[in-house]
Design a protein around this nucleic acid. Structure first.
Lengths: 116, 116
DNA sequence: CTTATCTACAACCACATGGTTGTACGTTAG
DNA sequence: CTAACGTACAACCATGTGGTTGTAGATAAG
């Protein structure tokens, strides 16, 4: 918490980026191979502009990046964004595990009392 | 992908649940200790009903559960939900790593050709 | 140069979201 | 029993989101 100076908004954007099936699909595609927006748009039953917006959301979330390549913009996956999300989830799991350990300690204490 | 029969909507709800600072804070609190909605509501600068809605979102996401305890409803964290989210992120990372390995293979091939 | 392609962006619409207040109901405390 | 508490839920409002179409700017192709 102290180390991670990510603002709440950044984290909001990160998870919001992942909270849509189309965006997750785009992400998995560009993780495999960088693709132009037009190329991506062909895959979905929606307008080019809609796909463009989804890519923009992923970009703001730090999950993908764009490199211009001639007249097209190649969208590529950014594994750092994923790792950031994964580490955040790890923190919550750590909280849980810490609590689980604390409970074990309490149970152990009870056993000690029983022994006494 | 074949094994995970989670619908896209479920995953949407999962990440949407995590995409709000208040909800993440509620989650971290109830992971440490189950609390009533009123108790939680005291911590935030918003109405009881608003907190109630956030809890409902977390509940639909499978991140928390409620146990009735007298006249209050105790909200407690559900680590399974977290683990599900973490595993999903792992899948994306696996895609990336697979691609990274593929690139290494290609580079190795190039080296073979150089040797030839 | 002209044309076609890829992209960006604005305007618009329907609907979801996050917030509010108010009301009603079950349960505990006096 | 009555009063207070914890919760649930409906109605409402402002704003955000996901979609559309249309227009305009760069860049590549002929």
């Amino acid at each position: 918490m102290v180390v991670d100076k990510a603002t709440a908004d950044e984290i909001d954007r990160l998870f919001h980026g992942l909270a849509d099936a189309t965006r997750r699909d785009v992400l998995s595609r560009v993780l495999r191979r960088a693709q132009s927006v037009t190329e991506l748009a062909r895959e979905y039953d929606m307008s080019f502009a809609a796909v463009q917006k989804h890519v923009a959301v992923l970009e703001r979330a730090g999950l993908v990046g764009k490199q211009r390549h001639g007249r097209e913009r190649l969208v590529s996956g950014n594994p750092d964004g994923l790792r950031r999300a994964a580490r955040l989830l790890d923190e919550y799991e750590r909280i849980w595990r810490h609590r689980a350990l604390a409970i074990e300690d309490i149970l152990a204490e009870d056993e000690d009392k029983e022994d006494a």
